[in-house]
Design a binder for these strands. Structure first.
Length: 597
RNA sequence: GGUCCGGUAGCUCAGUUGGAUAGAGCAACAGCCUUCUAAGCUGUGGGUCAUAGGUUCGACUCCUAUCCGGAUCACCA
C-alpha cells in the first residue's frame, strides 16, 4: 500500500471519530511535504473545515494529535497555517524498504494481469524516403508507451502500418527507371531507403524543370503541374500497378525490398521492433464493404455522382468523403476497414494510434464514423497525438534539404558519445566491444531521453548541434549514476558484503535516506500514471529526480566505507534499489543502461 | 473565418484531481577530486507564469475575452 493511501485511510478514521462525519475522498488531500518544512506527508486542512467547523489551525492540531495517539507509525506533526505536516517512523520506512526489495519487479504489474489487450500502432512510414527526426519521435513514443502499458498489466500488440503504395512511390520508381542506370544498394553502397529517397528527390527536381518549361509556353501553374509529362507517366504507372502489370509490379517489389532492408537497419539501431507489420497494399481495399453497409443502413449518403459521404455537421465537423464516385476508396475507408478487422481478430480492449497532431481531424472523423456504424468499441480508439519536432530555423522541409535524417543523427550521437568518453578517459582499459557497446548506449540514451522527457503533445525544438547535452538533465547523467551504482555494488561484493532484505530502522541516519525510500515507494504510482496518460515523460522526470537525489546522497555520505553496520546495510540496500529503479525506468523508455562508463 | 493544441528564467523544459515562498538543466560566474566513477556535488545571479477580467479561504492550474505561435478544416496519405 502506498503511504498516501495509508494516511488517507487513517485520516478518514480520525475525522469520523473526531467529528462524527465521514468525509468525501476529495476532502482528504494528502501530498508530499515540501522540502522547506519538517515532515514526510502533509494533510491540507482547508477542505475539512466544513466538517470540523473549526479554524484551520485547530482542525489540523486535533487531527494531528489523534493520528499520533492512535497510530504508532505516525510519530509527530506540526501545523503551518492550514497544513498538517506528518512524520512517519523509521520503522515504517525500514519496513517499506524491505518490502520493496523483496517484491519482484516492484512497480511493474505482470503482463496480462489486467486481462486487457491493447494494440499500439506506430512508426507507419512511407516507402519513398528514409526515416527522419519526426519518425524518431513517433517510434520512441510508440515503443515506450507499449512497454509502459505492458508493465501496467496489459497484453500489448505493437503494429506498424507501412504505406507502400500510391503516387509518391511511383515517383521514386519512375525516376529510378529513367535516371538510375540500374543503380542498386549493392552497386552504390547506399542504404536502400536512402537510395530510393534520392530518386524521389530527383523526380521532384526534374518535374520542376518540366513545369517551368510549360509555364514559359504560356500555361499557368496548375495546368503545368497537371500536364507535365513526368506527372502523366507517374499516373500511368499507378494505373499499371493497380492492374498488377508484371513489369511495374516487379519494379515496385524490388524497390520496396531495398527500403525495407534500410528501415530494418534503422529500427535495429534505435532498438525498436514490432509484433506485426501491415502493408497498405494489402489493406487499402478494406472498408469498402462496411461503407456499402452503412449506406444501406442510411448512416451515409450517396450523391448524384455516386460518391458516398458522411454528414458530421451535427457533430461540429463537415461532410466527409468516404468513397469516390468511381468506387475507389480514400484514406479513411481503409482505416475503417483495418480497425474493424483488428478488433475482430484480436478482441482488442483498446487501440492506440501514435500519429502526429496534424491528423487530429482524421481520427476525430474515424471515431465518429465508427460510432455511427454502431461499433461500440469506437470509444476505445485513442489517437496519441504528438507535436512536431522543429528546428531552430523552423519546420523541417524535405524539399529544402532541412530534414534531419534518422540514420545520420544516430551515428552522430554515437560518435559524439565516443569523443566525450575518450576525452574524459572513460574508455581506458576497455575492450573494443565494450567501448562500442557503451558509446552506443550513451549516444542513443542522450537522444531518446531528450525526446521522451518532453510532454508528447507539445511541439519541441531540436537543435542538432546544441540540443543534446551529456550533462545535467540528460540520459547520460542517469546512465552514469547507474554505472556508478554498479561500481559500488561490485566493490561491496568484492568485500563480501551482502545486500540485505531485512534492514533495521537503526540504519537511518540522515533525512536523505528517508527521502530516497519515499521516492522509490512512489514508483508504482508513476508507472500507473504514465500508462493512464500515455506519457513517457512522467517516467523520465521521475527518474531524473530520483537520480539527482541519489547523487546528492552519494556525494555527502559514504556507503561501503561506513563503519556502523546498520547504516552501511541500509545504504547498500538503498543503492541497490535505486539502481534497479533506474534500470526499470530507463527500460520503460527503451533506453539501455551500462554497468560501466 | 471555424475547431484543436500550446505560450512558465537568455535557451530547453518540469510543475499529478486548485494548496505553503513558481522548480530543474543548459549558458554565465565562484568553489569541491590522496577518499565508494568529478558525465558528479555546492553556491551566486536570473520570473508581471502572454495580457486583462472573473470564480474563492487560496489560481501557473478552473471560466471569459484579447494577443502571439503551431496544426487542421483535400475526391493526399
Amino acid at each position: 500500500m502506498s503511504t498516501e493511501l495509508f494516511l488517507q485511510i487513517e485520516t478518514k478514521k480520525a475525522v469520523e471519530r473526531l467529528y462524527g462525519v465521514t468525509p468525501e475522498e476529495s476532502q482528504i488531500q494528502i501530498q508530499k511535504t515540501r522540502k522547506e518544512f519538517d515532515g514526510d506527508y502533509t494533510l491540507v486542512a482547508f477542505p475539512l473545515l466544513k466538517v470540523s467547523k473549526k479554524n484551520p489551525e485547530a482542525t489540523s492540531h486535533e487531527i494531528g494529535q489523534y493520528l499520533i495517539d492512535n497510530n504508532k507509525q505516525i510519530t509527530k506533526f506540526n501545523v503551518v497555517k492550514g497544513f498538517l505536516n506528518l512524520s512517519l517512523s523509521n520503522d515504517y520506512w525500514a519496513e517499506m524498504l524491505n518490502s520493496i526489495s523483496t517484491t519482484k519487479d516492484f512497480g511493474f504489474r505482470l503482463t496480462g494481469s489486467s486481462n486487457r489487450t491493447v494494440m499500439v500502432e506506430f512508426s507507419s512510414p512511407n516507402t519513398n524516403k528514409p526515416l527522419h527526426l519526426g519518425h524518431i519521435r513517433n517510434n520512441l513514443l510508440g515503443f515506450s508507451i507499449s512497454r509502459i502499458l505492458e508493465k501496467n498489466g496489459n497484453k500489448v500488440i505493437r503494429v506498424n502500418l507501412v504505406n507502400d503504395r500510391g503516387i509518391h512511390i511511383c515517383k521514386s520508381m519512375l525516376a529510378w527507371q529513367r535516371f538510375g542506370n540500374g543503380e542498386t544498394p549493392e552497386s552504390s553502397g547506399k542504404k536502400g531507403d536512402h537510395l530510393v529517397g534520392d530518386y524521389y528527390v530527383r523526380f521532384d527536381k526534374e518535374y520542376k524543370v518540366q513545369i517551368e518549361e510549360l509555364k514559359s509556353k504560356g500555361l499557368n501553374e496548375d495546368e503545368a503541374k497537371a500536364k507535365a509529362p513526368l506527372m502523366l507517366e507517374t499516373q500511368e504507372m499507378l494505373r499499371k500497378w493497380e492492374a498488377k502489370d508484371p513489369e511495374v509490379y516487379a519494379l515496385w517489389e524490388k524497390m520496396n525490398g531495398w527500403v525495407y532492408d534500410g528501415f530494418e537497419k534503422t529500427y535495429n539501431a534505435l532498438g525498436i521492433s514490432f509484433d506485426k507489420t501491415y502493408y497498405e497494399s494489402q489493406t487499402y481495399l478494406l472498408g469498402k464493404a462496411i461503407v456499402a453497409e452503412g449506406l444501406e443502413k442510411g448512416v451515409f449518403i450517396r450523391r448524384d455522382d455516386g460518391s458516398i459521404w458522411v454528414d458530421l455537421i451535427a457533430d461540429g465537423l463537415d461532410e466527409k468523403l468516404l468513397m469516390r464516385a468511381d468506387g475507389t476508396s480514400v484514406y479513411i475507408t481503409q482505416d475503417i476497414g483495418t480497425a474493424t478487422q483488428r478488433f475482430d481478430e484480436h478482441h482488442l480492449d483498446e487501440h492506440i494510434y501514435v500519429v502526429g497532431n496534424e491528423q487530429e481531424y482524421h481520427f476525430q472523423v474515424l471515431k465518429l464514423v465508427l460510432k455511427k456504424l454502431g461499433y461500440t468499441w469506437s470509444d476505445s480508439l485513442f489517437h496519441l497525438s504528438y507535436g512536431m519536432v522543429q528546428l531552430p530555423e523552423g519546420k523541417m522541409k524535405s524539399r529544402e534539404g532541412t530534414v534531419v535524417d534518422a540514420d545520420e543523427l544516430v551515428e552522430e550521437m554515437v560518435s559524439t558519445a565516443q569523443e566525450i568518453s575518450s576525452e574524459l578517459g572513460k574508455l581506458d582499459g576497455l575492450s573494443e566491444s565494450e567501448v562500442a557497446s557503451i558509446c552506443n548506449m550513451v549516444g542513443l540514451g542522450a537522444l531518446k531521453y531528450f525526446i521522451l522527457k518532453v510532454d508528447p503533445k507539445k511541439n519541441m525544438t531540436f537543435n542538432p548541434r546544441e540540443s543534446i547535452d551529456f550533462n545535467g538533465n540528460t540520459g547520460p547523467f542517469i546512465q552514469y549514476t547507474h554505472a556508478r551504482i554498479c561500481s559500488v555494488l561490485r566493490k561491496a561484493d568484492d568485500l563480501g558484503l551482502q545486500v540485505s532484505n531485512s534492514i533495521s530502522s537503526q540504519g537511518f541516519s540522515t533525512l536523505k535516506e528517508v527521502e530516497l525510500v519515499k521516492l522509490i515507494s512512489e514508483f508504482p504510482v508513476i508507472v500507473e500514471q504514465a500508462g493512464k496518460d500515455f506519457s513517457p515523460s512522467f517516467i523520465a522526470n521521475y527518474i531524473y529526480e530520483l537520480t539527482k537525489e541519489y547523487n546528492q546522497f552519494y556525494h555527502d555520505h559514504t556507503i561501503i566505507k561506513e563503519e556502523n553496520k546498520d547504516i552501511q546495510a541500509l545504504r547498500l540496500s538503498l543503492t541497490k534499489i535505486v539502481g534497479d529503479t533506474i534500470r526499470k525506468s530507463m527500460w520503460l523508455l527503451g533506453i539501455d543502461v551500462p554497468e560501466k562508463m
